[in-house]
Every structure is written in structure tokens, then in C-alpha cells.
Design a protein around this nucleic acid. Structure first.
Lengths: 243, 243, 243, 243
DNA sequence: AATGAATGAGGTTTCATTCAT
DNA sequence: GATGAATGAAACCTCATTCAT
């Protein structure tokens, strides 16, 4: 144990990394039941070394799952920063689903409360939840996603999507299918064309937001909207007040 | 050996059933890795009895999965017989997803090629595929489902939906979410109103709302409607006033 | 249990036979470790029936071995009755070795004190020993076998011969080889030609028995013999006395 | 994994040896069916250690048999190097038979195609066959063994001899019996005297006993012998007296 | 700090034997 | 008496974990 945390020998830290990577590959391919012996062999280290860095199998599994989640958090943040809200949310979901489908067993672990302690999930998940929250808030502000979708739906959506894709016999078609179903979460346009995720993804052809000019959803019920959302309405109000 | 197959001693057949039920419960709760000792204990029989009826663990797992699938086939046939095509398909999918969500581990097995031989899946699955095929064909003929949905998508959809639901923290909301996403598979009407599963069922093929274009329920009595509801009527009125 | 021993129902006695035969075949092919389940299946009866007739596996094995020995006793008696002494002994040995080679596992059991109780051997063996004794005594009287061969060598010789034959890759050559080695037990003629088992099998060309005229072994040690054995010597003595 | 094969940790190699020795003792005494638990207990190690060194029971059995064969190969080579051809062959056979008789079960395994894969035999046996070949070739060149004896007879002879000895109730007599039977494989001399293995070994090619014709040992010193021993000398004397 | 050998509890499976039908 | 289902001890084998080197 190092006297000063973080001051471990460089090779030790490197070894931890090596083992973690090996475990990810091994678990991805063989499920979380893969023996630690196999992990050690893949990592090219002895069993003892695995245990030095991860004092039990459960700890190693947690670390692997946490790493997986961390990768998704990173992806979520990239999408949030570099795409407009709607694209960011749906783009991220599609990517996360794709990645998770390859790592089927990880999702199984998340979904199964009993076999792996929920603690793993919740611990590794705080940042993840924040990131999802951010994506969803933005998308809602942009009116790109249905109102009834909530933050804690998203993780389940990813897991479900991943399961769908990995259960599907055809990779390409499964991708289209997932896209189709995710479209169920988008806000509807008056022409029903919301489903096309690329070109006609934008709002209907009708009225526009009086504040920001975005196209407005036309709905058969309720008072016709003048603004695209609460934000613009508030903004307009302030202007009127200050004007 | 019984002279007539299926004519085994009654107690043997009963015991087989007992073991199978115990295995279903055990696997449902603890995953397919639950030890056969536990299954035997739950069934209240000795280890040898389990092996008399299921000569290896793999055989037992297959039997359990086959039973699960058989239950779904039965449900599919009920839906096909007792509901109109669109309802039958979507009703079955929702039910199957609900049932499968409780049996998360079974679906994991289906989705994972590696851990349990695909043979298990295919063997137990022929009738299942037929049943799904029938539901889908009917639904397509009735124009209730999008054309791009194919038969082998359906199993994956069930598995994905089950994963979603079992990963979701809130049972009721997860149901609504799945419904939402399944709607992505319905045929789109030009007014985007397909989502209302209950209302749409009453719509005829006749007149449309003069304001929003939604199909109008045709009733045999009373003055024919011009608008789909009070909202559109009011909106039309405003336009006339302002025009 | 029958009130009068030997008064069992006919079908019961028949069943005992059926099981015993099945066990012989099964043990011959698969060794004495073959499970009783297999024996029962081969016999076409239930496991319980096996146990009714043979209350434990050990008893069944004993019965099988005893049967094997009994067959050999029968053969020995046939040879003793129908061939001249030398032929009888060597003919029987060759036959017994051949038969035993096919039943390798039985001999293993006889040879291995530890794995199967010697009791089995000794119980089934009394008659066997008597039969061998008779064959050997006759052969010795006829001067067809070396003096140093004793009765309790013979069983070992059969077992050894059987082992040799079953270990040999070539069936025909193994037979010749055994014959060759058995010749080592025959009395030697001065021309060394004893090996021919048919024509020149008789004694050397030297002196003859003063009583019966049989050729006498010439040995480098001991007082030269006048009679071929104790029997002739006694007979001559009686004649001298009565004469 | 050791960089250099054979360079494992010393304690591991020692333990492998310990287990192997324990297995040899256990199998020798109790047959190849002895449980690995017993072997482990005898070796004073855990079950896992046995499995580390011998990943399945079959592997352990193979190793034990191979070790047994290797010991015999070593013996064969010693005989070939240190004795004249005939002695080498027969000396080795007798020794191998004696050793194998103590290890009855090993031979059973070799003889039984079914219970243990022939592969075991053939794998461990190449060098053994070579060694036997060499002994036999030399013996044939020296004219010490019958022509019809072939290389692949020898293994069977050892197995048969071992079976004979271990089935025989008397250790000493069984040895003599085997010697007797092996003599059947020696070339026959015109005087049939080949049988005395001990005496003949000292005989030269020179003079013969004036009475019985056996070859005489030629010694470098002393008066040349006319008779093979006291018996023949006495017999000759009587004839001269009576003549 | 790293290695890999040792450990032993626990899993699957077999089978002699008993017992309800 | 016959049947074959039930039993459970014991076999083989795996693997998370510890520990000597």
C-alpha cells in the first residue's frame, strides 16, 4: 500500500489498467462468469496480481461495469457539447445502445437486481444519470422529445435497446428497428413525418415560435402555441416587461 | 419402459412437473446459474430425481425455456383468435413483454448465443415463430402495422421490451414507455393520430375533421360531425371570425 | 420367498436366468463396473427385478463369475472324458484360455485380491480345482506333463494365458504363442520335438516303462526310472507279490 | 508460465512428483478406480493440486502408466547394455513380469481396449517398443530365441506373465512357472537342454557331458570335466561296473 | 510488487439401493 | 412378483481466494 494515495509505482498502475482491459474483453466475450484465471491469462499476469488490484471478483466486476458506464458518460458529454439537443439525445441513445449491445452481459448485470448488487449500478451511475438528465433537459427545451419521457427512462431504454439489438438476427435491420422505436419518443409533427431522423426531422411546416422562430408542433387539442416552449415564452415576457 | 409413450406412472409425471415448476421459479429468481441442488431442494426431491427427468442441467434449462416459450405461444394464439388483427399483435407483444420481464434471465439466455446453445432457442421456437408470423400477417393485412416490420423482428422486440421493463425502476411507467415505443411500429395516419390505441379503434374509414383532418368516428344516428372535437370546432370558428 | 425352496414360480426362475445372462454379456463387454441399470435394461427387466434375484451387485458379480467357472468345469470334464490325458489337459487349457480371453474382466477379478473378495473365487472354485486336479493327475500318469507342474499352477496359467491373448494385437498369432509357451510344460523328449502337439507328442525314444511300456523321460539327475509313475510301480509290485 | 519449459518452480515440480508417486501407490493397491480424493489424501495435498498437475483423471492415469512403462524401458536398456543377448532378453522379460505382477491393474488397463483408451498405451509405448525391438533383434542374431517370436508378442508376454504371477497363490513357484513357459520361446538345442536357464548361462560352446550330453561349463583352470555333475558321473560308473 | 501453486467448498453427475405403485 | 421412480452418497472437476516463493 502506498504511503501516499496515488503515489503507487507506475508499473502497478499500468498493471491495474492491463487487468481491467483484459477483464472487459473477457467479460464482453464470455459473460461475467468468466473465471479470474482466464482474465489473468488474457492480461498476461498472475492470479495474484489480479487480486492485488481487485481484492475480489465482485470488485473487479464493479470496476468493469463502472468503466463501461464511464465510457458512456464521456459519449453523452460529447453529444451534448457538439450536437443540437434533439440530435444529441437520440444520437447518444443510438450510440449507447450499439455499444451496449456488444456488451450484452454488462446490461444483463444492470437489469438483474439479484445477481449483482444494485450498489454497483447506483455507484457507477451518478454521473451517468446527470449526463442523461442534461441531454434530456436540453432535448425537452428544444421540444425534440415527448414530454412524458423522463430521465430514469433513458437507462432502461438503452438496456432494452441493447437487448433488442443483440437478440436480433440481423445487425443492420436491428439498428433500423431501434431507430423506429426511438422515434416513438420524439415529438409528433402535424404531418407525422417526425420519423425520419435526418432531413424531415425538424418541426412541422406550420406556425413558428414567436420568439425563436422554431417551427411549432400543431396538436389537435389544446390552445394553439405561440412559443416553442417555456423558455421562449418567459424570454418574450421579459422583453415585453422591459420594453 | 411404458408400453405406450406418455403412459408413465402418474407419480413420475407429477414429479417431473414439480421439478419443472421448481426450476422455473428458481431460475426466474436466481438466474440460470442456480445450482441444481437448490432446484431439487425447492422441488422437495433428491438430486437423483432431477436427473431422472432431466438428464443434464442443459436439458433442464431447455425444458424451462421451452415451457416459457410454450406459454407465450398459447397467449399468442388466444390473442389471434379473440381480438382484431392490430390489437392482437400489439396486445400480445405487450403481454409477452410483461411476462418476459419477470423472467429476465430466460431472455438473457435467448439473446446470448454463447452461454446457452442457440439450438435451445431454435428448437423451442418453431411454433413460436409460426404464431408470431400469423399475428404479423394478419396485422399487416389489416394495415395496422408498418410494412418494414418483419417476423424475425418480433422476438427481438419482446426481448428488448422485457429488458427495458425489468431495467426500469418504475413498473407502471415502464409499461407506458414500452407502449409508446411499440407505437413506432404502427402504421402512421396522415394526422399522426395512430397513437391513441383506444380511440382509433372506433374510427371508421369515412369522413375527416374539417380542421385537423383526423378521421371521424361515424355514428349511425345524429347529425354528422364536421370536426373531431370541441377544440377543432373552436379553432375553426376563430379563423372564420378573424378571416 | 417360497415356502419350499426350489418351488419358486417358474417365471421367477426364468427371470433369474435372463438377468444372469444379460449380466454376463454386459460384464464381458464393459467390465464389472457396468451399472446395474444397464444390466437391467439389457435383460429387459426393471431394476427391482435384478435386486430380487441378486440382493446386491456383489452377489450378482459372484454369480456371474461362478457361472463362468462352472462353464469351464463342464469343459474340463468333457476333455477329461473324451480325450487321452495329455490332450485333455492341454486341450482344456487352450480352450479355457481362449474363452477367458474373451472375458478378460472376469480374470482380472480373479487375479485382483483386493477389488473383489477372494471368497468369490474360492467359493466358485472348489469344483474347478477338482476338475483341474483330475486332468493334471491323469496327464502326469500318462507322463505328458512335467513333474514340477502342480494343480494350483493351472488356474494361474489360464489367467496368464488369457491376459496374454487379450493383450496381443493379433488373435491368431497369440494362439500360437500360447501354445508355444504351454509346450514348456510338456515333458521333454531327448530330441526336443515335444512341441508338436499331435504326432510327436509322445515320450522320448529312450527307455520304456517296465510295466506299461510307455517311453521314459531321461533326466540328468536322479535315479533312473523303471516305471512311468507310481501307478505302474505299484502294479508291478503287486504282481511280484502275487506272483 | 515459465519462460523455459521445465523451469517451473521447484516446489511445483516436487509436488507433481509427490502426487504421481501417491497415485502409483494408490492405483497399485486399489486399482485405477481409486478416487482422486484418496490420491490427494495420500499425497497430502488438496484436490485442486492434483488437478493442477493432472487436469483430468485420465491424464493422471496416463502419467502413471507412462511412468510404469518408462521404468521398464530403463530396465530394458540396462539389460541390453550389460548382458549377452539371450540373457538380456529373457532376464528383462522375467524382471518386467515380476514388476508388472505387483502392478496388476496397470496391465489390465493395457489389455483392455475399452476401459482406457488405447491411445494411452500407444503414446507411452513407442520407446518401449523400440527397446523391446532391440532386445529381440540382438537375441535373434545370437540365436537365443525362436524365430517365430516377434516384437509385438513381447508386450503381450509380459502382460500374460504378470497376470499369471499375480493370480498364482505362491510367489516363488509362480516365478519358476513363468521361467518354464518362457523357455518355450528359446531356441531348441539338439539335446533339449535349453531349459536350465541358470546352468546354461555358464555353459560354453565346447564339450558335452559324456553321460547326458549337456554342454559343459568350460573353466580356465582345473582338470577338464567329463560329466555335467555328480549324478551323471555316478551313473556312468554304474554302467561301467555292470557292463 | 508479482507470480503461480495450493486450497477446499461447491457444482454437476452417476449409480447402488430402496420403495411406492 | 415386477416395475421403475426416488434417494443420496460419492465421484470428478472448477474456481475464487490465499500464500509461499
Amino acid at each position: 500500500m502506498p504511503a501516499v494515495p496515488g503515489a503507487e509505482r507506475a508499473d502497478a498502475r499500468r498493471n491495474r489498467e492491463v487487468v481491467l482491459r483484459a477483464a472487459m474483453r473477457a467479460f464482453t466475450e464470455g459473460g461475467l462468469e468468466v473465471s479470474l484465471g482466464q482474465v489473468a491469462r488474457r492480461a498476461g499476469v498472475g492470479a495474484g496480481t489480479v487480486y492485488r488490484h481487485f481484492p475480489s471478483k465482485e470488485v473487479l466486476v464493479e470496476a468493469v461495469l463502472a468503466e463501461h458506464v464511464a465510457e458512456q458518460v464521456a459519449a453523452a458529454e460529447q453529444w451534448a457539447d457538439r450536437a443540437e439537443p434533439g440530435d444529441a439525445l437520440f444520437g447518444f441513445l443510438l450510440e449507447a445502445i450499439g455499444k451496449s449491445a456488444e456488451r450484452r452481459h454488462f446490461c444483463d448485470a444492470f437489469a438483474a437486481d439479484r445477481s449483482w448488487p444494485r450498489a454497483v449500478f447506483t455507484a457507477a451511475t451518478e454521473k451517468f444519470d446527470e449526463a442523461l438528465d442534461r441531454l434530456l433537459r436540453n432535448a425537452k427545451q428544444a421540444g425534440a422529445v415527448r414530454d412524458e419521457v423522463r430521465a430514469d427512462d433513458l437507462a432502461a431504454i438503452i438496456i432494452g435497446g441493447a437487448a433488442l439489438r443483440s437478440a436480433h438476427p440481423n445487425r443492420a435491420r436491428s439498428a433500423r428497428l431501434v431507430r423506429l422505436m426511438l422515434d416513438g419518443l420524439r415529438t409528433v409533427t402535424e404531418d407525422g413525418s417526425f420519423r425520419d431522423t435526418s432531413a424531415r426531422r425538424r418541426h412541422g411546416t406550420g406556425e413558428r415560435c414567436a420568439e425563436c422562430g422554431a417551427r411549432l408542433d400543431i396538436r389537435p387539442t389544446g390552445r394553439p402555441a405561440r412559443y416553442c416552449g417555456a423558455t421562449c415564452r418567459q424570454r418574450a415576457r421579459r422583453r415585453r416587461a422591459s420594453g
